[in-house]
């Protein structure tokens, strides 16, 4: 099956500023793809190009088998979009906006809409000007999730939602995925992507710095270890593959490359382990590591 989204060597410049600098991204059909990066990395610009709102300076972009700029209208029948910062027409009610946006997309599933309004606990009869940011976000989410489309493009869709609503969002996206739809989920909330995404792409400074399944990315990285020992640990610094070692009186923490894990733990046992906590790298650590390498290079 052809991928839902294929982007290669994408460049976008705004005057002298280079927002995207040769970005590559592949989203397979039927997967939830996490699109991660710090603010200003180029996530939203990429998405705006995928939506045909902004034209690429160079590079190739294919979306659902079409060109997002030239075939924008036809492609938009098959996708739904939620921006991170939703603005609504102040003198329309939330319910009206959901319908308007749904109809613009070519119709809305009424039953699904009512169900989502209920699940997200949205009052659709209030004027949009009275909504908080979270409620405006819900309006856009309900309208997009109730659409019968192949692809959902979600750009930091839960900013402003409380944790309960965040959980509802996770459930709904899981259902969408089970129904065989493709989701591009841009976020800097890493926990969200960790639970939902099949694969992730990490962007920085307009370029994809890492892409693959979470398991594969973790394989490349270090495990973090925190331990309490009977006697103070010495000699950790000299072990290969050990980083950021911090030793106190009777406690130690460090991270270690996968291939040197065995040697490091064996070294610890010589000091009498009283407790040992190890956890796989979180996405925060994945991203922090990229910063470190940049800084080291600079």
């Amino acid at each position: 099956m052809t991928p839902a989204i294929t982007v290669s060597g994408l460049v976008k410049t705004f005057g002298p500023a280079r927002a995207l600098d040769g970005l590559d991204l592949t989203v397979n059909t039927g997967e939830v793809h996490g699109f991660l990066g710090p603010n200003g990395a180029g996530k939203s610009t990429t998405i705006r190009i995928l939506l045909g709102l902004v034209r690429a300076t160079s590079g190739t972009v294919r979306l659902l088998g079409g060109d997002p700029w030239a075939d924008a209208v036809a492609l938009h029948r098959r996708l739904a979009y939620v921006p991170g910062d939703v603005e609504l027409w102040p003198n329309l009610t939330g319910g009206e906006v959901i319908d308007v946006l749904g109809r613009l997309r070519g119709g809305i599933d009424e039953r699904r809409k009512r169900e989502l309004i209920e699940r997200f606990e949205l009052d659709p009869r209030k004027k949009a000007r009275t909504y908080s940011k979270g409620n405006r976000q819900k309006v856009a989410l309900v309208s997009a999730l109730a659409a019968d489309v192949e692809l959902l493009i979600l750009d930091e869709p839960t900013s402003g939602l409380d944790p309960l609503m965040e959980a509802v969002f996770q459930q709904v996206v899981a259902e969408v995925k089970a129904a065989g739809r493709t989701v591009l989920l841009s976020s800097h909330i890493l926990a969200q992507v960790e639970t939902l995404a099949d694969r992730i792409t990490i962007v920085r400074d307009g370029r994809a710095v890492e892409s693959g399944t979470l398991a594969r990315l973790r394989h490349l990285t270090r495990t973090t270890i925190a331990a309490e020992t009977a006697s103070p640990v010495t000699g950790l610094d000299r072990l290969p593959g050990v980083h950021r070692a911090r030793a106190g009186a009777g406690s130690v923490s460090f991270s270690v490359d996968a291939e040197h894990l065995d040697a490091a733990v064996r070294h610890l046992t010589t000091f009498g382990i009283r407790s040992l906590v190890s956890h796989p790298p979180t996405l925060e650590e994945l991203m922090l590591r990229h910063y470190e390498t940049e800084e080291a290079a600079a």
Partner: peptide, 14 residues
């Protein structure tokens, strides 16, 4: 205001 972004992401010509 950003509302045009929501609209243009739907089936609406440029």
């Amino acid at each position: 205001s950003g509302r045009a972004e929501l609209v243009r992401a739907a089936v609406v010509g440029r």
